[in-house]
Structures are given as C-alpha cells and as structure tokens.
C-alpha cells in the first residue's frame, strides 16, 4: 500500500512553545486515520501542516508525493476544513455552496444537497449566526462534497447531534465506494468513531505516542483490575500507562503483549484482564503524562 501522506521528523516551534516535537507517521492511501489525543496535543498543528497551510520549523512533509505548501496541484487534491473555519460576515449557505466548487475540482452538488437536507442546515440564516453544530454541518458538507482524494477533518463532530453524526458516517462510507479517498479525522468522540478508523495516531504533548492499525492498538492494550497487591505484582514488568486505585482495588491500563505466564498468574490471583478500548487507551496516554508532570512538579518544589 502506498502512503498518501508522510510526515517525517516534523517539528513546529511557535516562539518558545514546541507544538510538534519530531513527529513522524504515515497515512496509507484510502485509509481512515483517527488523529487522537488531549487538547493541546498538536493535532490541529499537524493537520494544518498536512493541508499545506503551515510549514514545519524542521522536518519534511509529503502529500501525494509533494511538499503541499504553496503547491497548487497538491492543494487541489486536499479538502481541509478547520474546526474554527471563518466565513465572510454576510455569507449565507448558498454563498458558500456557490464558491466551494472553485476550490474543489471534483465537487458534487448532489452530495452537497443531500447533506444540507439531512443536516437541516437553515438556508437563510447568516453563517455567523449558525449554532456550533450547524457550523460543523457546513464544514462536513464542504469536506465530503469536495470528493477530494485527501480529506482532512479537524473536529468534525463538535456540537453535532447524534442523528447527524450517524448520517455523516453513512454518506461518507456510501460515497467512498465510487470515490475512494484518504481521510484523517481528529476527534475527542472516540467511542463513537473508533470503528470507523483503520489506523490511529495518538499524540500527546507534541509527540506521537502510538501509531498503529486500530485492531493492533487495542489488541495490545489491556486493562487489569483486581486487588492492589495482585495488580501491582502482575504489572511489575509491564508498560503501565495509568492506574487508579479505590479502596484496596486497583485498575491499570497498559500497552504491550502479555505472556501466558502472566495470564495464568492473573487467573490465580483473580485479576481480570480485558482488552482496552481505544477510548481507554487514549485516556491512559493522556493521564500517563499528567501523572509524570505532577511527579516532576513535586520534585522541583
């Protein structure tokens, strides 16, 4: 499988803040990739670099074989809608729909019309007066009706109601058959979109902490729960991302294959081991860092 997007050791520095710190990952052609992580992890920064709207301080980005920055043929293949997309003040929906095809050579008026109707986007209300969910709907109309080979969706679900979220997935998947595309989503609604991703990239504090096929990611991640001494004993040599204890009970979320010896011992010690869901895994990576920060603060205090 060829890679549509390749991010190679990308660092992005904003003044003294390092938003991306040597980030590398690849997006295979026609895959759906979830870009996950806490607020401030660097998801939007890496997206705007993929979209050619920003440049890395160092490192390389290749989209469809080119550096996307100011490269018109590459940009024509990308549909990128920011989560805080701005529109001119007096714009209504029809203005947006009239202008969008100029930037999207594969624009489908049918897909746009179907989405506008399904999302119930009000036609007469100025865009700037739309609700958060309605704004997200407009962004999805632009993202999907563009039929761009590379579709980058930054937080497409913000404020979107449950019916609209399922409708968005249905239209995307149905349109994919005749117009396959590579899609990168960033989202916090992990539980709901997890089954849509075939790959996940988890970021934390400007770094990639996990880049794997979805199935592999959750197959190798686990949650152990039982009495604190038993779980502590079992997790002794394992890569533990986060733990929580209540009373004498402990649950630990970790990553890495567990050998049969550990599993047998778990049974003996009555510790339950289950596969972690993607949501648990992302939360654990986020918490992991928060915990180590706290430790550092304590030490320096």
């Amino acid at each position: 499988m060829t890679n549509t997007i390749e991010i190679d050791s990308v660092t992005r520095q904003f003044g003294r803040v390092r938003a991306l710190d040597s980030v590398s990952f690849a997006v295979p052609e026609h895959s759906f990739v979830g870009l996950l992580g806490r607020n401030g992890a660097g998801k939007t920064t890496v997206m705007s670099i993929m979209a050619g709207q920003d440049r890395p301080t160092s490192g390389n980005v290749t989209v469809a074989g080119h550096d996307p920055f100011e490269h018109a043929p590459t940009l024509a293949q990308i549909s990128y809608v920011r989560d805080n997309q701005r529109y001119p003040d007096d714009y209504r929906l029809h203005h947006v729909l009239r202008i969008a095809p100029n930037f999207a050579p594969n624009w489908s008026p049918e897909v746009a019309a179907e989405l506008v109707e399904g999302f119930r986007i009000p036609a007469r209300t100025p865009i700037k007066k739309l609700s958060r969910g309605q704004l997200s709907s407009v962004a999805i109309v632009l993202g999907l009706a563009s039929r761009a080979p590379i579709t980058l969706l930054d937080e497409p679900y913000l404020g979107l109601d449950v019916t609209a979220r399922a409708f968005f997935h249905t239209v995307l998947l149905r349109d994919y058959e005749d117009h396959p595309r590579t899609v990168v989503f960033s989202t916090h609604l992990i539980e709901e979109s997890a089954s849509l991703f075939d790959r996940v990239v988890i970021m934390d504090k400007g770094r990639v902490v996990l880049d794997a096929a979805s199935d592999e990611a959750t197959e190798t991640a686990w949650v152990m729960s039982g009495t604190t001494p038993a779980v502590t004993r079992l997790t002794g040599n394992a890569q533990v991302l986060s733990t929580s204890t209540v009373g004498g009970l402990m649950s630990a979320t970790g990553f890495g294959a567990l050998d049969s010896e550990t599993r047998e011992l778990a049974q003996e010690l009555r510790v339950q081991i289950v596969r972690a869901t993607l949501q648990q895994l992302v939360a654990a990576y986020g918490a992991n860092d928060a915990a180590s920060d706290r430790k550092e603060e304590v030490r320096s205090a």
Binding site: A166, L173, E177, P180, L196, D215
Partner: peptide, 11 residues
C-alpha cells in the same frame, strides 16, 4: 457492510 456497520471499508 462498511456502510451498514459504519466501519472503515479497509476493516
């Protein structure tokens, strides 16, 4: 199947 179960076509 992808549309019905809302899963990625690759999966």
């Amino acid at each position: 199947y992808a549309v019905f179960y809302q899963i990625s076509p690759i999966t």
